[in-house]
Write a protein that binds this DNA or RNA. Structure first.
Lengths: 123, 123
DNA sequence: TGTATTGGTTAGGGTTAGCTAACTTATATT
DNA sequence: AATATAAGTTAGCTAACCCTAACCAATACA
């Protein structure tokens, strides 16, 4: 089942935090997203039910294989769209903020077309 | 107050329907958006409270000046983004569908940058 | 060893925005 | 005139997803 923006943001956050730490806790996710602890607890619980997130032996959050695939997909959208907007002259902050919303709403077809275009124009 | 996706879609729908008819009814909006009559009734009521929509003397829906400004803003995003995606090789249907979602989430800055880029590349 | 801090969860609430069922009102048809 | 149809509204439901308050458990430290 396709996730909504909220679920995708949680996966992406775990993915990003995992790049710099192998001990991702609920509170870290809460801080990163600016949400409360209970909101994170609930949301991660749902993602666990869907088999996208798990807890490792030390109680830290990890993405499952399925979760990692989805997280990478969203994260790629984020980086590519951010780069695109910066290439068009948008400031970094705005580019990243816009990418962060649009990444959840762009289809594979359109995203692939954008990637192809950027490759062609050497960016 | 900035509207959310839902409110913007209602304004855009009234705007589009008004181009081909001067008698826009709730049921027409419902058919266009694929929503139920009560959903439209409720949503339009809120937009009336916010001074964005009004009923004319014959009971048909009209945008107020403020509503029309917002509707045009969204509609321009829709047409420009659709054209952009088509230019990138995306099929018309997908391009329009993606534009319809993204139009609500793109900032002025990024949208202006996209418009400038398209003008420069003669599209 | 007792208390403070930190992290996680439970319980309950609020907003947004869809839905169906059922009622009202107006128009149209027989 | 009686009834059928169409449009709009009210009431109440649901789902997603955020919040605070309060509690539990583990660690830390004086």
């Amino acid at each position: 089942m396709a996730l909504q923006e909220s679920g995708e943001m949680y996966l992406e956050t775990i993915y990003v935090l995992s790049q710099t730490s192998n001990a991702v806790r609920g509170i870290d996710i809460a801080d990163h997203l600016g949400y409360s602890k209970p909101s994170v607890s609930r949301a991660i619980g749902l993602l666990k039910d869907e088999g996208l997130v798990k807890k490792d032996d030390n109680g830290y959050y990890k993405l499952t294989e399925a979760g990692e695939i989805m997280a990478k997909r969203i994260y790629e959208r984020h980086t590519v769209l951010t780069t695109l907007f910066i290439n068009l002259g948008v400031d970094e902050k705005t580019a990243s903020e816009d990418a962060c919303r649009i990444e959840h709403y762009i289809s594979d077809k359109t995203f692939d077309a954008i990637k192809a275009h950027m490759k062609q124009h050497g960016a």
